[in-house]
Design a protein around this nucleic acid. Structure first.
Lengths: 215, 215, 215, 215
DNA sequence: AATGAATGAGAATTCATTCAT
DNA sequence: AATGAATGAATTCTCATTCAT
């Protein structure tokens, strides 16, 4: 599925290294500006400057400003997919709780690296992007989750898997993002992971997660 | 080369009847534009136009563009508070499930009236608004929830009530908003209410919600 | 409702040839508009138009409208300093009267080239400019005069040199400006020079300017 | 010359007291705003507010914004004329120096009461006002001075009385205004009066002002 | 390919002036 | 006469995008 990770997939333009480097520089610069200076500062000029290229060059690689966000979105989707596949794939002999916790922890780690980016992706998404794009993005993540829940032998209590996947995805994402951006009193990483893991389990999984999680 | 255009002071609070009407027209126009034309279209001119007043009038009532959003935020917060108080207050002899469902249904109804508005409030908030404002807003809602969960006799399974209130608030809000904005396959109002009610109950409430909701 | 329009940072100093040309075009355009259309006409758009560039370009070189005036002020101060140094420096074996007359004539020539500009600099200065800037400007000119008056062997009748330099600077400047702007009956260049030279001499210099100047 | 002082002149509308009071309130408010909040703050609304009337009322008495300044100018001219007449008229048996000093002191007192107003009148004059108006204003003051200098028995050294009156008027006015607005180091009221008195005498009067001030 | 100066449409905001009440 | 809400032209400034070098 990944541009690089899947040996069977056709190698979509493994461009000249120079281009690749420039594109990456621009994407990284965008993230850096987003995180450190805020969404308003993320002008094409500023991004180009931080990336160490000229605006002209930026436009050589991206059709317009939104295209940068789209690329970032794609990259992120790729990573999320990867992450999920990795974690959900090897589920062989691990408890559901372990999986859920692993997912939450991995997501938290990933989000923490660039919370503002994820907010923009989650949000700017709906402004900037042709509606379809957002749908496609979310649908793909939800699809992955759904597929996982559908695996034979999964002790899932939900009937409507479409609904369940959608709800749990949005719920976890939002709670995590809000946590990172608002830093609310009474919550830290540990308790967040705790709570979200439990949220997932109780909502999705059938078996009475025996005693209590944070007991 | 005389000086022009300095950002000045706040406006005096809208006073009475006529004012009230104008202010409301502006707020409603903002919502309409937000819903029908998107956040980027919500310029002061466009809002004024839709409200049927001149820009000048708009600025007579709102110190600047953000002030409109703030007013909307305040209004919404008020409504949300009212709503919650109403529903959570009379909880006397009602099952937790009935309460949860009532809340979800009420929220859905409220959100459906203006989903784009709520996205902007939930989201744009973090761009436009002094961080404090968002925190205050969210904190107040979370506080209400937390207070409810703390009521004596509440069969709450959660230990960390701060965390629980925060998580469930963000989770429900986000899932609902995403549902309204993305209209994902496999979900309709009924199933959403079903799912979210169950999410709330299983996460928050202790007793095994006996049989199963969507069983 | 995204954010737009925040007053940002300073611009990078105009660099080289091309830049220099553009900057000069803008400054000259400003003067031309000031002179021919008046201070109120000197909007950023009009200046850009007359300069033959776009507003955008104007703002590429000047952080804001006032910055143009400041640049003009700086340029003028430089010229004035230069002028004074030139005239007062070579004072070796010239009569005080010759020096005074030379200064007045040079000033008149300089002011005549753009009287409205000088009015704006002398005057608008106090509105547009951080007070400090005006003080600094005037203080520097006054300082130059004062230094000259302090030269050993100067037959200065004044005791309070600070006061004298300030008074004579303001007096000559104002009279000259008013003459240029009002074109009052009974005055022409020759008589103005005559009068101001005599004003300077009689106020500043000790020796009885022997017989009479315009006698 | 004065609206009230000259019994022969037709009484131009000695309006109903109410009007008079309102007009005065507006003029005084303008001065207050000018002095305390600066020229930029002197909007019609602000002036009306400070005057304790509505904008509508303001426009009942003044055709437009500039008309207020014009009225102020007229009033000031009246006062200046009065002042001059008073001082220059009774010149019977007083030394020139005493007269000059009295004029300077009176002007300083008058200017000090509202320096910003006088700056605006001296300056805004040239922006706001049809050129003629400024000319007329200045011409009138200059005329008074000129007339005084022409009195028989005046020991005036100047030949070109038009020029002399113009120059000395502009010089004294500018120096005084600059002094009040810039508050330059090395000058105080006493020394300013000293310097300006001497400037006037040496420029205008023939006889070697015998011993003298800073001799 | 890369550069970055130039462009100009478009946004926020102000304020003199009008006019219905 | 007085009020003050409403008007909207005019102004400053930004930023995505283009294009000559």
């Amino acid at each position: 599925m990944s541009r690089r990770g899947n040996a069977k997939a056709p190698r979509n333009q493994p461009r000249q290294s120079r281009s690749r480097v420039t594109v990456d520089a621009i994407l990284e610069a965008t993230i850096r500006v987003l995180e450190q200076e805020g969404a308003d500062a993320a002008t094409t000029s500023r991004v180009a400057e931080v990336a160490g290229v000229s605006v002209g060059t930026l436009y050589q690689y991206f059709a317009n400003r939104d295209a940068i966000l789209h690329a970032l979105q794609d990259r992120e989707l790729e990573r999320a997919s990867q992450l999920m596949s990795g974690l959900l794939g090897k589920s062989e002999r691990v408890s559901e709780q372990a999986i859920a916790r692993a997912v939450v922890e991995a997501l938290l780690k990933s989000y923490r690296a660039a919370p503002a980016l994820h907010r923009v992706l989650a949000v700017e998404g709906l402004r900037v992007t042709p509606h379809d794009r957002v749908l496609a993005f979310d649908a793909r993540v939800v699809g992955t989750i759904r597929a996982f829940l559908s695996l034979p032998g999964m002790p899932v209590r939900r009937t409507n898997l479409d609904a369940a996947a959608f709800v749990i995805y949005q719920a976890v994402r939002a709670a995590m993002l809000a946590y990172l951006l608002e830093d609310p009193a009474g919550l830290d990483d540990t308790s967040l992971v705790e709570e979200l893991t439990d949220l997932i389990l109780r909502y999705l999984v059938d078996v009475a997660a025996p005693e209590r999680v944070s007991a």
